[in-house]
């Protein structure tokens, strides 16, 4: 391990701790503002689900339209385990997330032998089936009117009554999960995924098994979606089919694309900005979706790296200025 890689490694952990402390500081600075807390929790949950999709779409280059449906699966199953079977949250929450992860892996396995479009087809089919289950099986799921009241999350002696209490849980999980994707990106596994994205045949020639890493990416994406869904259930205390439609899956794709496929920082920033502005813009203007749509097209045409691409470009310019002739190193 060279000094530089060691420094980069420690730097990441240090930054994550700083972010966590910053978030907790924010929690106390904003104490009392229920709406602000709700917004903060919501944007962190969106970030969790979006960085999960980033593993699927940004790292391994697979278009999955099931992210919201996987979140629904995680959220509904955890809530139902708590409400109908009386499971404690501390067991139900991981169970929901694990179920979403297994479902994601199964979706990946189904498309192992066939090409990208079939993943789109199968994830759309999965979305449709999950939504139909929610709507049609109303005795279990509450149907179109939704599932409520979901009891507040209870971990040990800690009861998360409002968004202010849940903030701790969401913030810690968000920081850990974002840290994990960033670690993954720099690891052999992450590099293998990026290799598959840029050239499947080239990756195979280098001894990488594309099917294995695709399924792994889908299962991780499902895990993140599941965690997000569970937290969403505990935050809003209500689950309805319209929060998990195909359109919301597309919305996660928008976040990942604008953030820059494969860039953790970009996806996190865009996730927060879009969630907050969406809440604010919804009141101000009814053309915010139009703006998103045009923005997506603009980004794909002009700067396909998204925000992450712009950040990296700036970093590159700075580093070449300092040492003009240093060879480029992988980031």
């Amino acid at each position: 391990m060279t000094w530089r890689s060691l420094r980069a490694g420690i730097g990441l952990e240090l930054r994550m701790v700083v972010v966590l402390i910053g978030l907790l500081g924010l929690r106390f600075a904003l104490a009392g503002g229920q709406y602000v807390m709700l917004l903060a929790d919501e944007s962190m949950i969106y970030v969790i689900v979006a960085v999960g999709l980033n593993i699927v779409l940004g790292y391994s280059g697979q278009i999955s339209m099931a992210q919201a449906a996987l979140a629904a699966l995680g959220g509904y199953s955890a809530a139902l385990l708590v409400m109908r079977l009386g499971w404690p949250w501390i067991l139900a929450a991981p169970a929901g997330a694990a179920l979403a992860s297994v479902a994601g892996a199964l979706l990946g396995l189904l498309t192992m032998r066939v090409r990208t479009h079939y993943l789109i087809l199968i994830t759309v089919a999965f979305s449709t089936v999950v939504l139909l289950f929610i709507v049609n099986w109303s005795a279990l799921t509450g149907g179109p009117t939704g599932l409520y009241p979901i009891p507040p999350m209870e971990l040990g002696g800690f009861i998360a009554q409002g968004p202010g209490d849940l903030f701790y849980v969401v913030a810690v999980l968000a920081v850990i999960l974002v840290y994990a994707t960033e670690r993954l990106r720099r690891s052999r596994v992450g590099l293998a995924m990026f290799a598959i994205k840029s050239s499947e045949k080239g990756a195979q020639a280098a001894g990488i098994n594309p099917a294995y890493y695709r399924v792994l990416a889908m299962s991780l994406g499902g895990l993140y979606a599941g965690v997000g869904g569970v937290l969403f259930a505990a935050l809003i205390k209500f689950l309805g089919p319209e929060s998990f439609s195909l359109t919301s899956s597309l919305f996660y794709i928008v976040i990942v694309v604008l953030g820059g496929m494969g860039s953790t920082a970009g996806v996190v920033i865009v996730g927060v900005v879009l969630t907050v502005t969406q809440q604010q813009l919804q009141n101000l203007a009814d053309y915010w979706i139009l703006i998103y749509g045009v923005l997506v097209m603009l980004v794909m045409a002009v700067a396909p790296g998204g925000l992450g691409g712009i950040i990296n470009l700036g970093r590159e310019i700075r580093s070449t200025r300092r040492r003009p002739f240093r060879a480029a190193r992988p980031r």
Binding site: I63, L250, I253, V257, I289, L290, G293, V296, M297, P304
Partner: peptide
């Protein structure tokens, strides 16, 4: 779309999702 699919089909495919949002709204 053309500037996007000149790079990759996936980029332009994502772009059409944006188009769908824009047309609907």
């Amino acid at each position: 779309l053309a500037p996007a699919y000149r790079r990759s089909g996936v980029a332009a495919t994502v772009s059409t999702i944006g188009l769908a949002f824009a047309l609907q709204n």
